[in-house]
C-alpha cells in the first residue's frame, strides 16, 4: 500500500547516497520548474510598449493641441502629421513628403504643410500646391470619441 517504502526504504544501507540523489532530483527539478515558469511568467506580463493597433492611434485630448499647430505621431512604423486648424478641426496626413520622403511639418506662418527639404508645400487638404512634391499627402482619418482624438486609417 505504501509506495514510498518501495522507493526509498529508510533501512537501506546506502541511505546517504540515496538521500543525496533525492535532494539532487528534487533540487534540480525545482530549478527546472523555475526555468520553465520564468519565461511563462514574463510572457504573461504585459509589455511596456502599447500593443500594436496599427488601425488606430490615440493622439490625445481635443484641447491638448493648440489651434494652428501640428505634431508628428508614430502610427505603426509610419510618421503621421496631425494638424489642428485655425477653426479647431483636426486633420491627419502621412508626414512623409511625396517628393523625397522627408518629414513634413505644419507651418503656422504659412498656414500650410511645409517640407523643409525643398520648400514643398501642401494645403490643409494634403494637396501639393507648391514646390517639387509630385503628389498629395496620403490622408488619415480623424475620429473624436468623447474628448479623445483618434487617428485611424481606412483599410478598405
Amino acid at each position: 500500500m505504501n509506495s514510498s517504502n518501495h522507493i526509498g526504504s529508510p533501512e537501506s544501507p546506502k541511505k546517504g547516497r540515496r538521500e543525496f540523489i533525492n535532494y539532487l532530483l528534487g533540487g534540480s527539478f525545482a530549478a527546472w520548474l523555475i526555468s520553465i515558469v520564468y519565461p511563462i511568467y514574463h510572457f504573461l506580463e504585459p509589455p511596456k510598449v502599447e500593443e500594436v493597433k496599427v488601425s488606430n492611434l490615440k493622439v490625445g485630448k481635443v484641447g491638448d493641441m493648440e489651434k494652428e499647430s501640428g505634431k508628428i505621431v508614430k502610427f505603426g512604423s509610419k510618421p503621421v502629421l496631425v494638424v489642428r486648424t485655425a477653426a479647431g478641426d483636426y486633420k491627419a496626413f502621412s508626414a512623409t513628403c511625396t517628393h523625397l520622403d522627408c518629414i513634413v511639418q505644419y507651418r503656422k506662418d504659412y498656414g500650410q504643410i511645409y517640407c523643409a527639404c525643398h520648400n514643398g508645400r501642401y494645403d490643409l487638404n494634403g494637396r501639393n500646391i507648391s514646390g517639387p512634391p509630385p503628389a498629395p499627402l496620403a490622408k488619415y482619418n480623424i475620429a473624436i470619441k468623447g474628448d479623445e482624438v483618434i487617428v485611424f486609417k481606412d483599410e478598405s
Binding site: P39, I40, F43, P47, V49, E51, V52, V54, S55, G76
Partner: peptide
C-alpha cells in the same frame, strides 16, 4: 486580417519571451 501579422510580429519582438513561446 489587419492585425494577425502585426500581433504575431508583436509577440515575436515586444512580448517578453514571446519569440520563445
Amino acid at each position: 486580417e489587419n492585425l494577425a501579422f502585426e500581433s504575431v510580429q508583436f509577440i515575436n519582438t515586444k512580448v517578453y519571451f514571446g519569440w520563445l513561446i
